[in-house]
């Protein structure tokens, strides 16, 4: 999320006119994509469950080992399930809306290349998320590696699908940052990750002296659970719905 925020704030595009509505990102309507979409949630949560004891014992090492695995899972997921930014499918979704400006199609943009580009941008967004963790009170000088890896997982789960699907289109990213875009698997995953990580901080201060209270185990668990649940719910039940109540527009005159 944060990467999107920062991009939005420094963006130069002119968008003072009323925004054209941003469409939701659909998943491909085929059996493979449905299966992968569901399978990803199972694989991620299964991975977390399987590695939980390792995570508690050696958070940094476990998170580090998991980064490439999760990256592969996520790349496979976006390539097989989501339309890449600027691709035909993405356009198709937007087409019915009148007044939409047509962009020249980027020639030869295959999904995989988009995914790799998005992965690079996601990597760049990781320090921003790291900073956000620190702003919420994470230690600045201690546990730097743990915090950074936690931020990397956050970026992979929450930010990567959005960049893949939205590209660097300023208008969409501002809509995503303002949560005024309609709910879909990508935005749901991000919101879920934010909420999950937020709730994950709740048990940290308790004096229960449990091993799993070590930084950043609860955050990682929260963000995985939140992202998976959020992505799943937004892809199915709440697909296309807009969160109107979270911001002033609802009560503007």
């Amino acid at each position: 999320m944060s990467s999107a925020l920062v991009k939005g704030s420094s963006a130069q595009a002119t968008d003072t006119k009323p925004k054209a509505a941003i469409a939701a990102v659909p998943t491909f309507n085929n059996a493979l994509s449905k299966g992968v979409s569901f399978g990803r949630v199972a694989v991620l949560l299964g991975l977390l469950a399987a590695q939980f004891n390792e995570l508690v014992a050696q958070p940094a090492l476990t998170l580090q080992t998991a980064v490439p695995v999760v990256a592969v899972v996520q790349v496979a997921y976006v390539v097989l399930c989501l339309p890449a930014a600027g691709s035909q499918q993405a356009k198709a979704a937007k087409k019915p809306r009148p007044g939409e400006k047509k962009k020249p199609e980027a020639a030869g943009t295959s999904s995989l290349v988009t995914a790799l580009l998005a992965l690079v941008l996601t990597t760049i967004s990781t320090p921003v998320i790291h900073a956000l963790f620190i702003l919420f009170g994470a230690p600045l000088l201690d546990h730097v590696l743990e915090t950074f890896l936690c931020a990397a997982h956050f970026a992979l789960l929450g930010v990567f699908p959005i960049i893949y699907a939205r590209g660097v289109d300023n208008q969409s990213l501002v809509a995503v940052a303002g949560v005024s875009a309609p709910l879909d698997e990508t935005l749901g995953g991000l919101l879920g990750a934010v909420l999950g990580a937020w709730l994950g901080a709740v048990p940290i201060p308790l004096d229960w002296d449990r091993d799993w209270q070590t930084w950043p185990v609860t955050i990682v668990c929260g963000l995985y659970a939140g992202s998976c649940v959020g992505s799943w719910l937004s892809g199915t039940v709440f697909y296309g719905k807009r969160i109107g109540g979270t911001a002033p527009p609802a009560k503007e005159e």
């Binding site: 925020l5 939005g8 002119t14 968008d15 003072t16 009323p18 925004k19 501002v174 809509a175 940052a177 303002g178 949560v179 005024s180 979270t246 911001a247 002033p248 527009p249």
Partner: peptide, 11 residues
């Protein structure tokens, strides 16, 4: 409030 600020129309 940051999220809300992104919804402000005027640049």
């Amino acid at each position: 409030v940051l999220i809300s600020s992104f919804r402000i129309e005027s640049k």
